[in-house]
Design a protein around this nucleic acid. Structure first.
Lengths: 362, 362
DNA sequence: ATGAAAGCGCTAACAC
DNA sequence: GTGTTAGCGCTTTCAT
């Protein structure tokens, strides 16, 4: 005969008990071998290894979680309106199609993957969904949360803090609270753009702003205005672009109508810059010949744009990786006080700004 | 004083036992109320509800999973080489930045979200990672897997079948096996492209193929050739584009060198079509004036292209949604035999093909 | 309709 | 170094 389960029996997988019986040892010993705890005689260890092999044993994660109080998974929650798709609304949940989201996932997976951990993808697009998310976290389906919010005044972070769930945010919360986050030095990024435009010799520069209720957008705008002032330009014409391509296009058109001599434009994100490019072309302006354009983010829109955008790069993957490390640390040590890490943006020069006048040898 | 936990105590959350004590009933009754099992007196039910409220009780998912043998989560496995990024290789795990992946997630989340379920994002990019994935599934961290593979001869599906894990594939496996999948009628899509090109009056058409080890690519190529033959064109010049933009560009250049009179081109995916556009422009050909170009997928590359691509649309979101429903059914009933659902592609006409000669009033 | 009690499979003290 | 034992928090027969 054989060791195969009797015909018809649903092949209930082997348990520690089964392995112990086969190896002729106790459950604890098997557990020790499985979890690589040292105190095990190497001879016995081998016997157990064989028994595990023979039985095809695989530890049951629920049973383990129950006693260790660790799910071994973390949640990656996207807090945004599901319908808020970048463009075409043909499907809900298009949030996931946003390349930005992909970059965040890449960064998180980069640190989780080597650890054999996986993110649970959650969407908090309604009050109900938010409750579901918090509920899942509270009942321990995940040990903590990485939250990326595009909502102006997201209630989720506060709920998480209240529930005592370890969490790390992408970007500082609108309302100050005891929670960790990573963020970008938006002011510095805007300054980089201003400096570049000035170095290019642009005197008449304009600004296309993002939604005023988004902190990052505010910082980029004020950062730009302040930097221009420092360069001796006290006034910067501005128009709101709402972070969308079409918004950027309209803003640019308005700017052009009122300030036809504009030589340089800074848009608070790449999509708006892309829109600005469209308006500029429609107005017969050559980029970068007549007007230099700078975006922000260095997302896929920056490269897709024609001409490719000079932009302020946000190191999304690095930021997401850091968030993940921070979250893991919080899970490890629940007492750990909240912390924040601010990343520095860099300027990526492409074709939408004319090259600096500095003549170079060679 | 208050009901708050004593200072310093780690506030161990309430259990069924606690609720039962407060409500003055047994654990079973509380369990019944929590799980909405009918046989409970409405008066008692209310008492229990209050007790739950008072204690802030939340069921522990590990404990529940242990007895129900259900994780309540499913895995979304991306089986691909991590470094196989579309373009820039600055970061590993760029797979997640691929818009196609985003569409799959959108479709899956669309059916999972209403059910309060979440996908566990897994990456099987190496043999080791593959083992991790199978291991996780076997130990019950997820109840089943949705697998999207871009590997030519992916060993994962077979491993899953062998492990007895419920799974559904995106696209038919290269090696026939007892597993469910959804797929696209690639032949029909290619025929749509051929028909359109012929209707446009193109006689000299060429084909840019994808990797020969990818089933879908093969089907698109043969489908196209067969359809052209049916239209009386026995020979179709072809060049391999390897599914990348640069590959498409080179293939187009080669095609142009040997067949300068080409009037229409069908590329087996949008990225290659986009590359073909570049080569065509470089050769001074006007699209769609001189040459009509058709892509395949209707991914973001189709709209990003200049001019926007006429393409064969693959309903990725719908396909992913169906996969998810199938997987859920398999989990529900493990005896359920494998099944397959084939989707029909549609032609999306944009600017890369000149409009049909049919004159219209107005 | 409700309660008592048996376990799900595992880890971690604690003894030896 | 190894085994014994006591749970982790829940669902679920089985009585009542």
């Amino acid at each position: 005969m054989s060791d195969l389960p009797a015909r018809g029996v649903p092949a209930r997988s082997a348990t520690l008990e089964d392995v112990a019986r086969v190896a002729g040892v106790s459950r604890s010993t098997v557990s020790r071998v499985v979890n690589d705890v040292r105190n095990v005689d190497s001879a016995l260890r081998e016997t157990v290894r064989l028994a595990i092999e023979a039985t095809g044993y695989v530890p049951n994660s629920a049973a383990r979680s129950l006693v260790t109080r660790r799910a071994g998974a973390i949640a990656l929650v996207v807090s945004a309106t599901a319908g808020k798709a970048t463009t075409g609304e043909r499907f809900p949940y298009q949030v996931f199609t946003d390349p930005f989201f992909g970059r965040v996932v890449s960064g998180a997976v980069g640190v989780l993957h080597p650890l054999g951990m996986y993110p649970l993808l959650m969407l908090a697009d309604t009050a109900r969904a938010r409750d579901h998310v918090v509920g899942h976290l509270r009942r321990g389906s995940a040990d903590g949360a990485l939250v990326v919010s595009t909502l102006p005044d997201d209630p989720l972070p506060a709920l998480l803090v209240e529930a005592g769930v370890p969490a790390v945010l992408y970007a500082r919360p609108a309302t100050p609270m005891r929670i960790s986050y990573v963020d970008l030095a938006n002011h510095d990024g805007a300054r980089l753009a201003a400096d570049h435009l000035v170095a290019l010799g642009c005197s008449n520069v304009a600004l296309i702003t993002g939604p005023e209720d988004v902190l990052a957008a505010q910082e980029r705008s004020t950062g730009f205005v302040v930097a221009m002032a420092r360069h001796g330009h006290p006034y910067v014409p501005a128009a709101d672009g709402d972070f969308t391509a079409i918004g950027g296009e309209r803003a640019m058109a308005r700017l052009l109508a009122e300030h036809p001599y504009t030589e340089g434009v800074f848009a608070a994100n790449d999509r708006m810059a892309q829109g600005a490019l469209v308006a500029l072309r429609a107005a017969g302006r050559n980029v970068p010949g007549d007007v230099s354009v700078i975006g922000f983010d260095d997302g896929s829109a920056a490269i897709a744009a024609q001409p490719a955008l000079t932009t302020v790069r946000q190191p999304v993957e690095d930021m997401a990786a850091e968030m993940t490390r921070m979250l893991l640390a919080h899970i490890e040590d629940p007492e750990r006080p909240p912390s924040s890490v601010i990343f520095e943006p860099t300027l990526v020069v492409r074709e939408s700004t004319r090259s600096t006048a500095k003549p170079t040898v060679d």
